[in-house]
Design a protein around this nucleic acid. Structure first.
Length: 644
DNA sequence: GCAAGGTC
């Protein structure tokens, strides 16, 4: 029997080949530079000793497209809601990969799909089946095998090979639905917006004066692209929302009581339990009452000291990596992913696109920690984790997310010759990994409550007892309180040093940081770990948002503001009066995700979801088209406001 | 010229 195995990427096909063949496999180049064919023998329980060829694709092979008959300007925009959709090869390389599969399929008796165990992986499996059918029409959904695996440990891979299932047609339907909705709505709204803003906004990069816009060719070239995407717009919405909260923020004055106590010739500040009141008179009355009743001392009501813990970090996911690299190093999410990919291809870290925050049970932590003992910076710490007598090592905590395809990001090789961003991110991944293998930090928290007439005040103080992971994860700060607490007992009277009424004003929120934006997208299901950075980058290049440095020195950070165009678009879409929907909020995407889950469950057919969803977008399109002047005017208003 | 999702 001849068995053809196909993985989602070469890396996996090589690793699976090595596991199944016990490192006894031959490798051949293909026409695609990303893919190799590996051959070996394997004894499958259902077919006996087989000749196996294992190859891979490189992500999706095919791409959905609007047919050229429905090109820009050739048809009414809304015909894109019902026009046929064609699929073609993503690029030349994808075609070579598909041909490699068709060719191999000709002489194969069995086809086994080894794509990632997620929705997209199921769909890529379907694309692989289609390519195989070109060469061997006997392969169908009913006889193709699908290996289910969630990591690359040999035993697990062996078991996956021996217990294959079928491709999940429902998951394939779900992905197909998402693709169709994104394509139709994206193209349709993009054409409308770009055409509507044609004479209102000019691209910066062209010489407008020399071009009167008569030539279609020049028109295209000079147009500013105003793209719409089901992820782009909610992303823009997050930035605009924060901007609005700042813009319309009304500051309020508040009052409080500052109390300083005196003991052993030292002063200790205490915090009012009511924190602050927005009523000056009430604050003054309370203050006067305290002074009158008990003018020079307070009574200690409560003293407690409790152990407290600061948890070592969870195993690292893509989104966490991007958030921390933005926060600590000011790297954009896109740069971070790019650099992490370089480190991955150099064999230094594991696959950098993962949602999983718990390591496989069989993970050999010692192996990966041992590698790091060579470092002059963290080698000593790594050795101390390995030292059995001091019990510094612990199996990392387990998070609740599992993409069932990749383990958390961790170092898999050692290097000390890296420079620039690669050095920084590698060090981060290593320290984070070592930290997750370290004990939690411990401390003791003392809390004192005192009573001054009717009012209660408190103060807390932290003493860090064991730093543990903090020693290696240097970006996390948890320090003993500098001020300390007075040494007091319950019932004791303490002298008041001074008590004053303070006042302040509420402050507006800060503009959105990239860390916050990534979090918002992540929790709202806008994009995936692999695409969140792309969506942010896209609306930056479309000039819907800009990045700005806020503050100076060590505390400076980079934040996002909407541009006039971005604000105008979000504001304009808000004024169109859709029926209970918003294109700049994440809810439509969430609804669609729920529908896709229903398709996977079999509780809603693909056709129904497509129709219902596209109907909603089509209504929105019709309204946008009718009131497009409202949209343009919102932009003009924003422009005028910015000039005045 | 236009989306989002894979991967290099």
């Amino acid at each position: 029997m001849k068995v053809l195995c196909v993985a989602e990427k070469n890396k996996i096909s090589k690793s699976v080949s090595a596991s199944l063949s016990r490192n006894n496999f031959q490798s051949r180049n293909t026409k695609s530079k990303y893919v190799k064919n590996y051959s070996f023998r394997f004894n499958f329980p259902q077919w006996g000793d087989c000749d196996v060829i294992m190859t891979a694709v490189s992500g999706h092979i095919m791409q959905k497209e609007i047919p050229s008959d429905y090109g820009w300007g050739k048809v009414p925009n809304d015909s894109l809601f019902k026009c046929p959709i064609v699929t073609r090869y993503g690029d030349d390389n994808a075609k070579k990969i598909a041909e490699n599969i068709s060719e191999l399929a000709k002489s194969s008796d069995v086809l086994m799909i080894w794509t990632d165990c997620d929705r997209e992986g199921e769909y890529i499996g379907w694309e692989i089946l289609k390519a195989a059918q070109e060469g061997n029409s006997s392969f169908t959904l009913d006889n193709v095998y699908r290996a289910r695996f969630s990591h690359l440990e040999s035993k697990h891979i062996y078991s996956a090979a021996c217990n294959p299932v079928r491709l999940d047609k429902l998951a394939i339907d779900a992905v197909d639905t998402r693709m169709e909705i994104d394509l139709r709505t994206g193209y349709c709204f993009t054409r409308l917006l770009t055409d509507s803003f044609r004479n209102v906004i000019k691209s910066d990069s062209v010489d407008d004066d020399n071009n009167n816009g008569n030539s279609t060719k020049n028109k295209k070239k000079n147009d500013k692209m105003i793209s719409y995407g089901n992820c782009q717009f909610p992303t823009l919405g997050f930035v605009v929302d924060r901007f609005r909260r700042i813009k319309y923020f009304k500051e309020e004055e508040f009052w409080g009581i500052d109390l300083n106590l005196k003991k052993d010739r030292k002063k200790f500040p205490f915090i009012w339990e009511r924190n602050r009141l927005f009523d000056r008179l009430q604050t003054v009355c309370i203050y006067q009452n305290c002074i009158n009743e008990q003018s020079d001392n307070v009574v200690v009501k409560h003293v407690s000291t409790n152990p407290t813990t600061r948890y070592a970090p969870l195993p690292l996911t893509t989104v966490e990596l991007q958030k921390d690299c933005s926060r600590y190093f000011k790297f954009s999410a896109k740069d971070t992913l790019q650099v992490a990919e370089n480190l991955y291809t150099k064999g230094l870290i594991s696959y950098p696109r993962t949602e999983t925050d718990s390591f496989p049970r069989s993970m050999d932590f010692r192996h990966f920690i041992t590698m790091q003992t060579a470092s002059s910076e963290w080698g000593e710490y790594s050795s101390s984790l390995l030292n059995e007598t001091n019990h510094k090592f612990r199996v990392p905590r387990r998070g609740k997310h599992d993409d069932e395809a990749h383990p958390p990001i961790h170092p898999v090789g050692y290097a000390d010759n890296l420079t620039g961003k690669e050095k920084t991110i590698y060090e981060y991944v290593v320290r984070r990994f070592l930290a997750s293998c370290s004990l939690d930090a411990t401390g003791s928290m003392t809390s004192i409550k005192v009573q001054w007439a009717t009012e209660t005040f408190h103060s807390t103080g932290l003493v860090v007892l064991e730093r543990n992971y903090l020693d290696i994860f240097k970006w996390d700060h948890w320090d003993s309180s500098k001020k300390g607490l007075p040494n007091v007992a319950v019932g004791e009277h303490i002298q008041i040093s001074d008590a004053t009424i303070s006042s302040g004003k509420t402050a507006p929120p800060q503009p959105l940081t990239e860390t916050e934006l990534i979090s918002l997208m992540d929790v709202n299901g806008i994009g995936t770990d692999a695409t969140i950075a792309d969506h942010i980058d896209k609306i930056l290049t479309r000039e819907y948002i800009i990045k700005q440095k806020l503050g100076s020195g060590k505390s400076s950070k980079e934040v996002f503001h909407p541009t006039i165009l971005g604000y105008g678009l979000a504001d304009g879409f808000g004024k169109l009066g859709f029926n209970n929907i918003s294109l700049t909020k994440p809810f439509m995407r969430k609804d669609m995700e729920n529908d896709l889950a229903d398709i996977c469950q079999g509780s809603k057919p693909k056709g129904q979801v497509l129709k219902e969803t596209l109907d909603v977008y089509r209504d929105a399109y019709t309204i946008t088209d009718e009131k497009v002047s409202t949209l343009v005017n919102a932009y003009k208003t924003a422009l005028n406001h910015s000039r005045s």
